[in-house]
Amino acid sequence: MKLLVRNLERKTTEQEIRILFSAHGTVTDCHLVLDQETGLSKGFAFVEMPNEAEAKTAVENLNLFNVAKSKIRVKFAQS
């Protein structure tokens, strides 16, 4: 299941996101979207979790969760 993570602090790293979601289950992929010109975060990422139950738990527990002074938003990504 692919999850969309929005409203990330620009300094949040891909590794930090992976660790955050790994607490709720297996993460097979984590992709922090970067601006091609500056190399800085655009403030959102995609996280892939193969187990549907774990992905649902992550969404329930992490949506509106505070990360680095920013309240993140987590939902299922649209295909």
Rank of each mutant, 00 (worst) to 15 (best):
Q15E: 15
T38Y: 01
K56M: 09
A77W: 01
E9L: 12
R18W: 12
L62Y: 00
G25L: 07
M1T: 13
N51C: 11
A77R: 00
K69F: 08
R10W: 09
I19C: 08
E14L: 03
K2I: 06
E52Q: 10
E14G: 11
S22A: 09
Q15S: 13
S22W: 05
E37Y: 08
N51W: 06
H24G: 05
V27K: 05
K56Y: 06
L3I: 04
V74A: 01
A68W: 10
L40P: 04
S41F: 00
R10V: 12
G25K: 00
N7E: 14
T13A: 05
T13L: 04
V5L: 03
K56H: 08
V33N: 02
F76T: 10
H31R: 15
C30G: 03
L32C: 08
E14R: 11
A45C: 07
L8V: 08
L4N: 06
R73G: 10
E37R: 13
F44K: 00
T57C: 12
I19H: 14
T57M: 12
A77L: 03
Q15G: 09
K11E: 14
Q36Y: 14
Q78L: 09
K75L: 08
T28R: 09
A58Y: 00
I17G: 04
S79V: 08
E9W: 03
N51K: 06
E54Q: 11
K11Q: 14
C30Y: 04
L32A: 06
R10C: 06
T28D: 10
S41Y: 00
V33A: 06
S70M: 07
T57F: 05
G39M: 02
Q78E: 09
Q36N: 15
E9Y: 10
T12P: 06
T28W: 08
F46P: 04
A53N: 10
L8Y: 03
D29L: 09
K75Q: 14
N51F: 10
A68C: 14
E14V: 06
N63K: 03
V47S: 04
D35H: 04
T28M: 09
I72R: 00
A77G: 00
N66F: 13
E37C: 06
K56C: 06
